[in-house]
Simulated assay, not measured.
Amino acid sequence: MSNVIVIGCGRVGSQLANMLSDNGSNVCVIDRSADAFANLGRNFNGSTIQGVGFDEDVLMRAGVEECDVLAAVTQFDNANLMCAEVASRLFDVPHVIARLYNPDHERAYMQLGIDYVCGTSLVAEDVFSKIVSGHGAHIETFGEFEVLRFSLDLSWRENSKTIRVSEMERDHEVCIVAFERADGSASSIPTPDSVLYAGDTVLACVHHDLIGAFSKYIQD
């Protein structure tokens, strides 16, 4: 059972909180307005706290120190960004997800390495899927596929800290779209023979159902 904090109790936040609660998670919802909690309905069995989602005292009252996932899903990108930064940098929350409402801010989210979901009508479903599957580094969803941007983890390979693109694609039925060396010295669209090193940044297209098996490549 995971402990989840949801910041923002509008349509997306309330839907997400109920989905997580119904799935067995311990959920605490934070919103500036106490009236917003009416969106949760009578069947919500989590907790609520009125306050600002990036306030340290509010987060501690919500249980951030024992939190497994924090999702900032207000309609304000700056607020979501601040919530994500405070949760990840001050409280070391293992998985932080922010709603991206304005696509013009996408570059800032990517540069900060923040896991995010774009502001479409399926935001709650997308965030829920990411929390349940336990993965991050998401960029976009295309039907049954997700594009992931992540730092390559090869620590589980006993005898090698490199891997060929063809091996990753063959064993996991994914498509490696692009990669960048860990030191930023080069980036490239790969060929099957391209060699990837531990720590390289990789852009990959992965089917939803295969993310669990593929997650061993994703550095936490």
Rank of each mutant, 00 (worst) to 15 (best):
127 V>R: 01
172 H>F: 15
38 A>C: 07
23 N>R: 12
5 I>M: 00
35 D>G: 08
48 T>K: 10
140 E>Q: 14
216 K>F: 00
8 G>C: 11
73 V>M: 01
99 R>M: 02
10 G>Y: 02
194 S>W: 00
165 V>Q: 03
166 S>N: 01
156 W>G: 14
216 K>E: 11
149 R>W: 01
112 L>I: 13
178 A>R: 08
124 A>L: 03
220 D>H: 13
168 M>K: 01
169 E>D: 05
150 F>R: 07
44 F>E: 04
52 V>S: 03
161 K>A: 08
197 Y>G: 05
71 A>C: 15
216 K>T: 15
197 Y>M: 09
113 G>A: 09
134 G>T: 04
63 G>F: 03
155 S>L: 04
194 S>V: 10
186 A>F: 09
176 I>F: 00
21 S>E: 08
55 D>N: 15
152 L>I: 12
91 F>P: 15
184 G>C: 02
64 V>N: 06
48 T>P: 02
58 V>I: 15
67 C>H: 06
34 A>R: 12
182 A>W: 00
18 N>T: 15
67 C>K: 08
85 E>A: 12
190 P>C: 00
220 D>N: 13
170 R>V: 02
60 M>R: 13
29 V>N: 11
53 G>T: 12
100 L>V: 14
214 F>K: 11
58 V>M: 00
15 Q>H: 06
94 P>S: 11
27 V>K: 03
160 S>W: 02
118 C>L: 05
186 A>Y: 09
93 V>L: 01
14 S>Q: 09
130 K>R: 12
173 E>R: 10
171 D>W: 03
66 E>R: 12
9 C>A: 14
92 D>S: 14
107 R>C: 03
2 S>D: 08
75 Q>V: 12
142 F>Y: 13
195 V>K: 05
124 A>T: 14
167 E>N: 07
